[in-house]
Design a protein around this nucleic acid. Structure first.
Lengths: 348, 348
DNA sequence: TTGTAGGCGTTATCAG
DNA sequence: CTGATAACGCCTACAA
């Protein structure tokens, strides 16, 4: 850690106190255009309520003065801020990167700014952050929320809220439909000669982990493949490494994990133990996070369109902001199997 | 894409129009506490200017009413919003993930909310986003900005601005000091028998890429290693793949790349061509992004503390917001070599 | 179509 | 130490 010398420090920008020259207001424009401030306000917010002529005059004046609305002044009477909030459980987790990206992209496409916060996996922190945000934003996206359904409903009754990766009755949700992807995966595995499969589960409280396990069971029933569930200590690369011995002990020749991180750790450990992937054991991850194709062999995984989730959730919110009702049931987005090198025919 | 049925749609939250019951204000508290609204304001903002007794009364009343300040109303007279803005060139780029995380973390630790925007690598978009944000936030962080020094200085003269990954005279900057890490890398490579090294450069406009190439040259001079510079088409995995033939043609037995993505792509391509890493060629990346250790062998890389950069930039900003001057020169953070499997002794 | 006036919730100034 | 009162910049009935 080098620290900077302290000579000739950068000066703090000139403060704009009460009486000083500040950014131009609608009053300045009004003066320049020779009209009343309220006319300026109308011209600049709803381009219909003013004559074409004065409209132009005002717009020119605004341009000339390089005018920008003061969002706070506008928010005060209207309550709208042109921002949407996003709370993620863990900024550290790559799964959320895509969600953030998706939300930011479709938000900014509609001229909304994204405000970000993290709950650090704590329901309490999450609630606090949510409450604080709710005051500042027009709508809120909760990605994999940890707090009670009840609390979420309460928030949703205040301002539009959209939830990702969890279904909550009465609240707009965007949820990947895992069945399709899982079904594809199990079919592919079965076709490659696998008859015994293990599912490495995620955190017990995870709504999604349960859904995925159910999906695996259903698909395995259908394709006549045996399925066992294994527990992981944590849904990380490390957790994946740790579960390797259980996988081996289970006798399964194919594994589907709760997420890609687990799959990557598992594969690393298995390979370190001398196993050939996929010749001796096939590994299928979940989500298709950034980096899933960095491994050797590249990871086969069930892609969960996280970016789309973020994007859809934002779109949902913006629609509600336009006054539309939210969707009746959860919005489901498809998952799909992405076959790469870590799964294949069993060479036995 | 499944879409939801539209029966029993989630209703839009009750709007809070003009006259309806809204959240409690300091007037409500004042009434309940039997004091003047201005006293409430004082008690709640600066806990010094009011008698201990009334202070308590007011706090209790606020508690009871579940009062929360209206950020907009507060921002109007003061101009402060308790938010900092962060503009990144590309949300897609994992390099920025850590920066975002760092900024959010230290920001929220000091009760500041992070507002995020992306410039999509366009100087124009960046400037627009910056301008828009500057109206809404207390300070702004520019990560790897693409616009002119001049424009940035202009922004910085308006509100506190901190820049990451670039040095701009007169503007607070946080920049990884690449020399230490590069020096460690070249020394390690030299010690392992490498005598000819290639540097795969990043985008021509990248300030950082030039710095890194300079660092490589200096270190190679010192350790008596030959150095050639190779160009990449783009700083991605794909770009890394494409540069593989040039690397081979260069005769170098060790490579340092502008970033990890290039290194990963290069390694994949080299391995596909039958080269043994690191026996026949050593590869060293730059940054240590998420996933750098997913590869086989895991990538040796010069870690650039991106998270710390984000964190330091945020801290800088917050300090300036407290009225402190910015640092005199650029704040330098250390880089360090992280030795993993992709570099090692040359087996010739 | 445009001007007038009042208010949004808070802070800041000035008396008392 | 506390109470009145005027901004802050914009929006929106209401009146002209």
């Amino acid at each position: 850690m080098t620290d900077a010398m302290n000579a000739g420090a950068v000066a703090f920008p000139t403060k704009r106190g009460r009486g000083e020259k500040s950014s131009p207001t609608i009053y300045d424009i009004a003066k320049l255009a020779g009209v009343n401030p309220s006319t300026v306000s109308r011209a600049l917010s709803k381009p219909g309520r003013v004559s074409a002529k004065t409209q132009k005059i005002i717009e020119d004046a605004a341009e000339q003065l390089n005018y920008q609305v003061n969002p706070f002044a506008r928010a005060l009477p209207t309550g709208r801020t042109q921002t949407i909030g996003l709370i993620v459980a863990d900024i550290t987790n790559p799964t959320f990167f895509d969600i953030i990206r998706g939300a930011e992209t479709t938000g900014s496409a509609r001229d909304y700014t994204l405000v970000l916060a993290e709950s650090a996996e704590s329901p309490e922190t999450e609630l606090i952050a949510a409450r604080r945000m709710l005051g500042t934003v027009d709508g809120l996206i909760l990605a994999s929320p940890r707090m009670d359904d009840e609390k979420i409903r309460a928030l949703a009754s205040d301002k539009p809220v959209a939830v990702i990766n969890r279904e909550i009755e009465g609240v707009p949700c965007v949820v990947p439909d895992v069945n399709k992807g899982i079904s594809q995966a199990v079919r592919s595995l079965a076709a490659n000669g696998h008859q015994q499969l293990a599912y490495v589960a995620g955190p017990p409280q995870s709504w999604m982990s349960s859904r995925r396990w159910e999906g695996v069971q259903t698909a395995c029933d259908w394709y006549k493949v045996g399925a066992v569930r294994l527990e992981s200590s944590k849904p990380t690369v490390d957790g994946g490494r740790q579960v390797a011995r259980d996988v081996l002990a289970s006798g399964a020749t194919a594994v589907i994990t709760y997420n890609d991180l687990l799959a990557i750790g598992l594969m690393q450990e298995l390979q370190a133990a001398g196993m050939q992937v996929p010749d001796q054991i096939s590994i299928v991850g979940f989500d298709d996070i950034f980096g899933a194709d960095f491994t050797t062999p590249a990871l086969t995984t069930i892609r969960s369109p996280l970016g789309e989730c973020g994007s859809r959730a934002a779109a949902l919110l913006l629609d509600m902001l336009l006054g539309h009702d939210g969707p009746a049931g959860p919005v489901r987005v498809d998952t799909e199997l992405v076959v790469r090198g870590s799964s294949g025919r069993l060479i036995a």
